[in-house]
Nucleic acid binder design. Sequence first.
DNA 1: GAAGCAATAGACCAGTCGGTCCAGTGGCGC
DNA 2: GCGCCACTGGACCGACTGGTCTATTGCTTC
Lengths: 183, 183
Amino acid sequence: MSDPTSRDKLIRIASNLFRQKGYSGVGLSEILKEAGLPKGSLYYHFPNGKQELAEAATRWAGAWLERLLDTTFAQAESFDEGALMVCDAIASEVTSQTHVPACPVLSILQAAPLEPRLQITAQEVYGSWTKCIEKHAERLGHPRPDDAAFSLHCQLQGAWVIAFAHQSNAAFTQLARELRTKL
Amino acid sequence: MSDPTSRDKLIRIASNLFRQKGYSGVGLSEILKEAGLPKGSLYYHFPNGKQELAEAATRWAGAWLERLLDTTFAQAESFDEGALMVCDAIASEVTSQTHVPACPVLSILQAAPLEPRLQITAQEVYGSWTKCIEKHAERLGHPRPDDAAFSLHCQLQGAWVIAFAHQSNAAFTQLARELRTKL
DNA sequence: GAAGCAATAGACCAGTCGGTCCAGTGGCGC
DNA sequence: GCGCCACTGGACCGACTGGTCTATTGCTTC
């Protein structure tokens, strides 16, 4: 743990690649090549190999998004306003790169039948996001925090899939327009 | 074309497998084994191999869902009622199998960077669904058919992702409950 | 400088991948 | 019965997969 940069670099690069091509679509050699690290380093930091790396990458990206939810909602004065701000925030994050990346959890989801631990990871990260939104919904006085959290998560997830398919943030701007009418 | 059963069998089985494990997560050998067909048959019916099979499988499943949209909305007396019925219909279709399958388009989406034709296919199928919903929205007198179509597509997509992650149709029933309040 | 450990470097492995190729096979038209 | 052709059967290929293993490096602590 003396030098965390190699481990972090693997996680960051793996997360980016998985979000573009999915878990099964990315080979270790591609990750290693982009990171400029040999195979020995990967198996030193992640003894269980690809699956463990994917789990770490998903949790890392999941935590990043949860921070984004937290800081964005913290600035809002109502739940609906917060929802709109979150939508805009994800849209701009997603478009800031040359390739629109998928939701980090989605990347590993289809590998779940092959790697059971990844399914658990996906469910936990989703649960964590929902709890986070629910917390803010309650704080901002929404009458049904759990319904509100599910609904927003659902809409964001759907918009993200469509945005990924079209490689454009149009779906997010459309969703934002819809959310704005509820203010 | 004299005996379409082999070709159809390949499409059906490929679609099922892709929707469970994603395009890159399924090997040709697995498809062939389950279909009980040799490799020669596959490359006879689909000279361009896996990519062409995946495209056919996606369009096939896409057409199936579009028929479901059409027949379901045809029975509705308002757009909101139709939306609710569609949600229920997908929920029951998805749960009728031992494994909750992902949206057929989602399966091939993450392979888009590797197989450009699949990205086009995905966009076309999505576009076709949206157009179909829009048509019914207009027919049923919705003030903004395009917004309504996007919104419903987005919600269904999100619910499907969550349902797939949890291998349960709870997300659809929750969405249905939400849609019911708008009636 | 020696010992010890964290970390890197990459050769190597068996297995699988998608794809190619050609020899067979069965039914239909003649 | 013969030829034709749609289709099947499967051996075979090079490339690549995730994973293992050992040698080596370089820093730290005596």
